[in-house]
């Protein structure tokens, strides 16, 4: 990770991972987010992932594709992903651009996202990371 304030923080809540994006991300930072998340799903045996993109200025084709990739990779690793916090302006631009995160569950905000996961995957306490 580069020095300076973290661009993304990934928090653990029992068996869920909550990734909050704090600022605009460029392509390589999106890729890094993807790799970190997928790696942590295995490490913490997570079964739910929430990605909060409220602070993203733009979700262009690459950003949207990366989110879809994360969701699919997480699914293959046994975790359900929900994207929360897509701003109305960003949503409008995404529709104009002609793409969506079709197939990836979305929710209005973190609270709704947690409710979505709680209804579908059991949140269970996790003792600690494997391999520590």
């Amino acid at each position: 990770m580069s020095s300076g304030p973290a661009l993304v923080s990934i928090l653990r809540q029992d068996s869920y991972l909550i990734a909050s994006v704090h600022t605009a991300l460029d392509d390589s930072e999106m890729i890094r987010l993807r790799n970190n998340l997928v790696e942590q799903i295995g490490r913490y045996r997570s079964n739910g992932v929430i990605i909060d993109v409220a602070a993203l200025d733009v979700l262009d084709s690459f950003g949207a594709k990366t989110l879809a990739t994360i969701a699919e990779m997480a699914r293959l690793r046994g975790a359900l992903t929900v994207i929360v916090g897509i701003q109305p302006d960003v949503a409008f631009a995404m529709v104009q651009l002609g793409m969506g995160t079709a197939g990836v569950p979305t929710a209005l905000d973190l609270e709704e996202g947690l409710a979505y996961l709680n209804a579908r995957v059991p949140r269970r306490p996790v003792r600690g990371p494997l391999g520590d």
Partner: peptide, 11 residues
Amino acid sequence: TALTTIATAVS
């Protein structure tokens, strides 16, 4: 909204 649209196109 228009600003985000412009930013997306530039991106």
